[in-house]
Amino acid sequence: MKKTSDTPTFTTPQGRKIAYHLTDGTGPAVVFLGGFKSDMGGTKAVYLEDWARKEGRAFLRFDYSGHGESDGAFTDGAIGDWFEDACAALGLIAGKVVLVGSSMGGWISLQIARAMPERIAGMVTIAAAPDFTEDSMWGSFTDAQKAELAQGQVALPSDYGEPYIITKRLIEEGRNRLVLRDPLSLPFPVRFLQGTADADVDMSVALRLLDHATGPDMRLTLLDGADHRFSDDTCLTLIEQSVTEVLHAAG
């Protein structure tokens, strides 16, 4: 997605320029965190923005550095950079937020919950992919791919277009961001959403996350036949219902 002149931006403490769209409304604000190499113009983000506008609810969507309309090269980034971008984006909003994290955005949401639980009123994850650089990527690499990565990067085929260029830094830096190895407290309403036909994030990941995290109000919903995009009408309705439920439970 090419940046347009009227897209607002802010600069993170690390000096990265981030594009965003903020809808005014009542709090807690709903914040959408997108997936790996996706952008804030995706179906789920725009659907939720439309819903929030109708509800008079504050809503934020943004692009991580190297994604969408934000500055930077995708291959220069790593999970920690995008986590820092998300934390800086929360600085645009006063008060508590409800995080809606899709795929990698689910992992980043969990990191935010660990780093600043006092900011979080609730959370909805959609095909969350915690620790995917280690468990899904590194864990499935062949010896040849690991050797290639040691030289700097390796290309992985993608169902979504061009191959993913996976850098050595992405894998190594991701090891500092893992959330499934140590206790993970989610002291607020949480709804995990997962499709049974997801070819990118297996259902076992959702079950592992539910079993690993601790919290007073955590629920996992499996949607039969839904794929990783989780963007058809049934999926979008479930996302909306889940966000509404979390907002109600959060009071």
Rank of each mutant, 00 (worst) to 15 (best):
M1Q: 08
K2N: 13
S5D: 14
S5L: 10
P8Y: 03
T9V: 14
Q14N: 01
K17T: 15
K17I: 14
Y20F: 15
T23A: 14
D24Q: 11
T26S: 11
V30Q: 06
V30R: 06
L33G: 06
G34E: 03
G34Y: 00
G34C: 12
D39G: 03
D39V: 03
D39N: 15
D39Y: 13
G41Y: 07
A45V: 14
A45P: 09
L48C: 01
E49H: 09
D50C: 03
W51H: 03
R53M: 07
R53G: 00
K54M: 08
E55Y: 04
F59A: 00
E69R: 13
G72R: 04
F74Q: 10
A78H: 15
W82D: 01
F83E: 11
A86W: 05
G91Y: 12
G95S: 13
K96C: 02
V97M: 07
V97D: 12
V98W: 10
L99M: 02
V100H: 07
S102D: 14
S103P: 09
G106L: 11
A113G: 15
A115L: 09
M116F: 02
P117Q: 05
P117R: 01
E118K: 08
E118A: 11
E118M: 02
E118S: 10
A127T: 13
P130C: 04
T133S: 05
G139T: 01
G139N: 08
S140Q: 06
A144I: 05
A144R: 01
K146N: 05
A150L: 10
V154D: 07
A155N: 15
P157A: 12
S158Q: 08
Y164F: 15
I166R: 06
R169M: 04
E172V: 02
L180S: 06
D182N: 09
S185Y: 10
P187G: 14
P189R: 05
Q194H: 13
G195K: 15
T196K: 07
D200Q: 13
D202Q: 03
S204H: 12
S204K: 14
S204P: 00
R208T: 08
H212W: 14
A213Y: 01
P216Y: 11
L222N: 02
D227A: 04
R229N: 05
F230A: 11
S231Y: 01
T234Q: 10
C235M: 08
L236C: 06
E240W: 02
Q241P: 04
S242C: 10
T244N: 09
